[in-house]
Design a protein around this nucleic acid. Sequence first.
DNA 1: GCCGTTTTCGGCCCGACTGTTTTCAGTCG
Length: 587
Amino acid sequence: MNKDRVAEILSEIGVLLELKGENPFKTRAYASAARTIESLSEPLEKLVAEERLGTIKGIGDALQSKITELVSTGKLAYYDNLKASFPEGLLSLLQIPGLGPKKVKALYEKLGITNFDQLTESCRSNKVAELDGFGEKTQAKILEGIEFRKTYASRHHLHAALSAAEPILDQFRSHPDVIRCSTAGSLRRSKEVIGDIDFLVSSKQPASVVDFFVELPGIMSVSAKGETKASVVLGDGIQADLRVVSDREFPFALAYFTGSKEHNIVMRQRAIQRGLRLNEYGLFRANEETRDPALLVPCATEEEIFQQLNLEYIAPELREDHGEFAAAEAGKLPRLIEWTELRGSLHNHSNWSDGQNTLDDIVTHMTGLGCEYWAITDHSKSSFQAHGLTPERLRSQIKEVRAINHRLEGEGSSFRLLTGSEVDILSDGRLDFDDDLLVDLEVVVASIHQGFTQSEAETTKRLIRAAENPFVHTLGHLTGRLLLEREPYKVNHHAVIDACAGTGTWIELNANPYRFDMDWRLWHYAKDKGVKCVINCDAHRQEHAGFLRLGAGIARKGWLTKADVINTLPLARLRIELALKRGARVK
DNA sequence: GCCGTTTTCGGCCCGACTGTTTTCAGTCG
């Protein structure tokens, strides 16, 4: 039983207790313990074995004994009994907007509703509207929610949310009543998957801005609209929320709505410890909730709020309560990488395998973007589905790349293509090409493309074996996950990272927004082990060069700096590192 | 269920909006 599964069970216990109508603080204790366990940096088994669980904040006697039971026996009687007291599927009803634990409880107890079909049926026959606390509108909203859920996913890839948000932000920027504006929430924190888009605006005319927002073209429906906030559904099914505040309140509201929730809780607690109150309206010298301007500690920017709480400025990407407070207090926050520091991508495809563009097109486009280099790493022969290259075709591609580089040199261009391969890691961990071919390539990325069903131990062993090949520079997309589509294959990340630390092998941060693989939560560990990151586009068409920006956002979430990322190096230095990686093990 | 320089009980982050109510509970972020 791994820690993710333990966290999942604790979090589910929290929800089930809510459905039971338990003390909300008790349910919160389970939810908070789940988050704590999920973000542990050392193995849960070790903590349990050494009986150190109780030393973790938020885990007391009761949770310690439950987690110990889970980890050592793989089961938890308390959870099994609790789960058995509710019908299967009841929890899924919570996914409908407007339905929380209390309403789901009422639907279950009064009407015996346990699934979507029964709920639809009861709404259609008007039974739901007759319940206490429900009404016509609630009933209609539930039906709408069920329908919406069928049509659209409730969560979205980062690039989809960004492309929907940026034009709207531009509209706000040019609106005369808007003073300052920003996105907030998970989008601003650069989370890999976004639930909804949050906009924050400061204005002296909030009503005018709210009206403007709900009237924007491309808005499908308006779900809520008040004096200072509104919720809409955009054309592509993404929900967007707007909040309008005064300009004095803007930095406080920005910090508040950027979150994360966990981060905010700590911020508030820090304020309370200093005899202050922090909310979305300000930081106040008071012991109770207030909005009294006379008590305000004025802050013009987010930076000043952090200062008042004796913290270094914490970048939005780090606001997950994953150690940022300890570092900010000690003045030890890293200077995070900027996407403009990236100079090229070391894992990309061309029309030689499954990419769209010719080598010449790639040169023109990437030169135009200001890149210094671009590695061509088409698939290897076992990836039939992707027209993987045979050794012969790869040899001719190497010749063509060299010819192009020769031509570029003659033209006085400093841009270079790099020869390479995304070589398949076969089921037993061997590579799809022999070493005598790999040695002739400048860049080798090794990735898994088949055999997803192997056990965690087998896949881990496979990756480690690939990492140990001296000609491999980088392990590509470690888990093969496709966000919101395909589960990652099971990998013991820590073991793979440890192995890479030993061999000097780099790990890819695949910047394709469907992948963002390796996950940001693991980079801090990799960085501490001295493992370098390569932020790769895995580009299959030239527009994918834009993924570099997204990848840098994810790298920032992983606490990475310019020095941690190989492809911030200028070409000459990169070539030295590419050679050193091999030279360290090959004479 | 957790926690403690307010310490073994009594707190636990808190405000906006909606819908159902007629003063507030539930949901959401």
